[in-house]
Write a protein that binds this DNA or RNA. Structure first.
Length: 157
DNA sequence: GCCAACGTTGGC
DNA sequence: GCCAACGTTGGC
């Protein structure tokens, strides 16, 4: 099993949105970055666990946990000209963009902020805390995953 | 709202 | 294949 972190802007699609979806499940559409695409298409497997991360907001950080419930399949929003992330170069016969389905598991006991995460040596290898990182999906090692989960029970640093 | 960092595009 | 220009991300 693998572990991941996925970013989303809470104003656009936050963890509350996911929680309110039917079956608490939604497809993670709109990713238009090849590195992230490759991970969804090739590496994310059913049952993998994912941190839900709120980005571009007052308090960026990890807010919850979700699970991959469907493996990579074509992102149909790329085919629809009325969609914000329409990409005329993505052909239904040869799709350029992929997505996975994720299901809400739970919120973390507290928001684990980026600022806090940046302070731990255990996480210095994680792309999340590196300057200029813009990857919206990234792998998290089991060690890092377990470490972050333990932070939940601490007081905010 | 600013701006640094980065990815993508397209001319050559 | 290089690289400048441009657009986007995302923290602050």
């Amino acid at each position: 099993m693998n572990y991941w972190l996925m970013k989303s802007e809470p104003d656009v699609f936050g963890i509350d949105h996911l929680q309110k979806m039917p079956k608490k499940t939604d497809h993670w559409d709109g990713v238009r970055n090849y590195q992230a695409r490759n991970m969804m298409r090739d590496q994310m497997k059913k049952g993998d666990l994912v941190f839900f991360y709120h980005s571009n907001c007052a308090e960026p950080g990890i807010v919850g946990i979700m699970k991959v419930v469907r493996e990579g399949y074509p992102d149909h929003t790329a085919f629809d000209p009325s969609e914000k992330y329409y990409d005329p170069k993505s052909d239904p016969d040869n799709p350029r963009w992929y997505m996975v389905d994720v299901q809400y598991q739970r919120k973390t006991k507290r928001l684990i902020s980026l600022q806090e995460l940046k302070g731990y040596r255990e996480l210095e290898d994680c792309p999340l805390v590196r300057k200029g990182n813009r990857l919206s999906i990234m792998p998290i090692s089991k060690k890092q995953w377990d470490f972050i989960l333990k932070l939940e029970n601490r007081k905010a640093a």
